[in-house]
Design a protein around this nucleic acid. Structure first.
Length: 602
DNA sequence: GCCGTTTTCGGCCCGACTGTTTTCAGTCG
């Protein structure tokens, strides 16, 4: 690890690059996610040790706060900002964060980890095993490994422990075998839509059914969801639960009572159903939409007003004063309705209280799409088909941005083929009305930060989208440098899928997004929010960072077939999670304004 | 461990379901 001085010089912007607005982008020894993980681990250990549950909560809360920050705490420290001004971070945790940011290590975690059996932490990740059972299994079975526990369970030794029974033993064996570690199996948002529709359709035929809605992270439009939460309004819960547990796609009914049931489908997706009376429907929606942190903050606010919020309503003493609609619940504690995408306890309650909630962008605000492919490279449709489909979806413009030559497997365009495509697009625009096709390219950013086509060719286009498609494994410094260099080229309009992640498949490459966003601001170019459900790249947090720095985001489908244009809605919901408003987004502008803004990058 | 028109102590969100009980603890969301 080099000295502070070396780090600084190695990362200084190179010749010809304007320095990013707010000074340097140095390597950070522990990033927010690293620190959050350490805090989660510490919380697990304190839980095992049956330490004060509120201390456990404090660590988990701090981890959540760190994950939601739009700046690295390491950078905040360098700027002299005080960490204990962050919500839920006091003197002690601020000190621990500072230690990690400085040294990359947590002495607290190292000390604690030595004191608890590793096995207990592993057991705690199994369903229905919490800290107490985990510790007792370790101690009373004298187990050292998951294999020890498995052997003991097979030998019937678990059921003989007091408080444990045969059913628990069976379930334990099952989860050990399935290795269905709580390590949560997650699903991409778009991939659960079908299950959601089918479950709702089934429920709609239940006796006494009044209405239903999917709540949970699905309704908050998180990029991935762990399960589906369904709220049903009906008079008699038992009838609905009985009906629901006969949903044909169910593999297993995990639990079923008179008002709620949990099932798993053959796909492994879990569905929780909760039945409430009509007058509690809004309160139940709030409760089950979450997030948990949002609910806690909301209830705490209610407490200060001598009110109690639960899934049945808002209560003053025993009297329900609200609950039929979500708006009534928020109104009861003096707040306007808060959109589901914002409910993460990331400042939305404070914003609501002070009348500062953002007017979130809507799908209908989007006027065009600035990233799409045709059959000239790896798309499935011709430019004519693409333009027609865009027009039918009500878009005013669409950019054709095929791949460049480097992407050989996609049959990327060389200069001549690109020039020919430019001519075809001009001819198309001359003869077709109702939708304008913009001339673009998704040009590869090479390893050294150069672009895959000559400047003179790029100059003929309306926009240039730069993209990293290779060398994902570069160091953070090199990757950041590479992207910054590319953005400094004379023709560079939009950085495509800025972190390169594929949800649940491939992590983002190492890149300093704070640096990239500030460079985009200095350069006057834009960042893409790629709307493909496998990408949704930018993340919600990065959207907020872009907004904070004043960088416009372009919500693009990256369509490879005309059906992909429908993915725009996933991009928009991600933008909404990032607090973006209409004016924060490039392609909510009219064609003439977009042309003007793009021209300035060229 | 955090926090304060309850401010340096004493609180900290709330309820359902299961299994093993015989009135409840543990886990989950």
């Amino acid at each position: 690890m080099g000295s502070e001085k070396q780090k600084r010089s190695s990362n200084r912007p190179k010749r010809g690059m304007r320095a990013p607005a707010n000074e340097p982008c140095e390597p950070i020894l522990a990033r927010n996610e690293d620190i959050a993980r350490a805090f989660d681990d510490i919380a697990d250990i304190y839980e095992l040790e049956r330490d004060n549950p509120f201390r456990v909560r404090a660590y988990r809360n701090a981890a959540r706060v760190l994950r939601g920050l739009t700046v690295e705490v390491g950078e905040m420290l360098r700027q002299g900002e005080k960490l204990d001004e962050l919500p839920g971070i006091g003197e002690d945790l601020a000190g621990q964060i500072a230690e990690m940011a400085r040294s990359g290590r947590s002495s607290k975690l190292e000390e604690l980890a030595a004191a608890v059996p590793r096995l207990a932490l592993e057991l705690m990740r199994l369903p229905n095993v919490g800290p107490k059972r985990a510790m007792r299994l370790c101690d009373e079975l004298r187990a050292r490994s998951l294999d020890d526990v498995r052997r003991a369970a097979r030998a019937g030794k678990v059921r003989s422990l007091s408080g444990f029974g045969a059913k628990f033993e069976q379930a334990l064996l099952h989860s050990l075998a399935a290795a269905d570690l709580k390590k949560e199996r997650r699903f991409k948002l778009a991939s659960v839509q079908g299950y959601a529709d089918a479950a709702l359709a089934h429920l709609a035929r239940a006796p006494g059914f009044e209405k239903a809605e999917i709540a949970g992270s699905f309704r908050r439009r998180k990029e991935t969801v762990g399960d589906l939460d369904v709220i049903v309004a009906a008079r008699r819960g038992q009838l609905v639960i009985d009906w629901f547990t006969r949903f044909p796609e169910i593999e297993k009914v995990v639990s079923a009572g008179t008002t709620r049931a949990t099932v798993t489908l053959h796909s492994g997706l879990q569905i929780d159903v909760r039945v409430v009376p009509q007058e509690s429907y809004g309160a139940a929606l709030v409760y089950f939409t979450g997030s948990k942190a949002h609910n806690i903050a909301l209830r705490r606010l209610a407490q200060t007003q001598d009110l109690k919020i639960n899934e049945y309503g808002v209560f003053r003493g025993d009297r329900a004063i609200a609950g039929e609609t979500e708006a009534s619940v928020y109104a009861a504690v003096g707040l306007p309705m808060i959109e589901p995408e914002l409910r993460e306890d990331q400042g939305e309650i404070e914003a609501a209280a002070s009348g500062a909630l953002p007017a979130l962008v809507r799908l209908s605000d989007i006027r065009g799409d600035l990233h799409a492919h045709t059959s000239e490279t790896d798309g499935a449709n011709t430019l004519e088909e693409l333009a027609q489909a865009a027009k039918e979806r009500g878009l005013r413009y669409i950019a054709v941005t095929d791949h460049s030559r480097r992407l050989a497997f996609a049959h990327g365009l060389d200069e001549n083929r690109l020039l020919a495509q430019i001519d075809r697009i001009d001819a198309f625009n001359d003869t077709h009305a109702g939708v304008e096709v913009l001339k673009g390219i998704e040009v590869d950013i090479l390893e050294n930060g150069a672009l895959d086509l000559p400047d003179a060719t790029l100059a003929r286009l309306d926009l240039v989208i730069g993209a990293v498609h290779s060398q994902f494994g570069l160091s953070r410094e090199k990757q950041t440098e590479r992207i910054l260099r590319a953005m400094e080229r004379p023709h560079f309009s939009i950085l495509a899928h800025p972190t390169g992640r594929l949800l649940l498949e491939r992590d983002a490459y190492e890149v300093d997004m704070t640096c990239v966003i500030r460079a985009a601001k200095a350069r006057g170019c834009f960042l893409e929010l790629n709307a493909h459900p496998d990408r949704l790249d930018l993340s919600d947090v990065h959207c907020r960072m872009a907004k904070a720095e004043g960088v416009l985001v372009s919500v693009n489908t990256d369509a490879h077939r005309i059906q992909d244009l429908a993915n725009l809605r996933f991009g928009v919901s991600q933008a909404r999670r990032g607090w973006l408003e209409k004016d924060d987004i490039l392609n909510t502008r009219s064609l003439s304004t977009v042309r003007k803004l793009l021209k300035a990058t060229m």
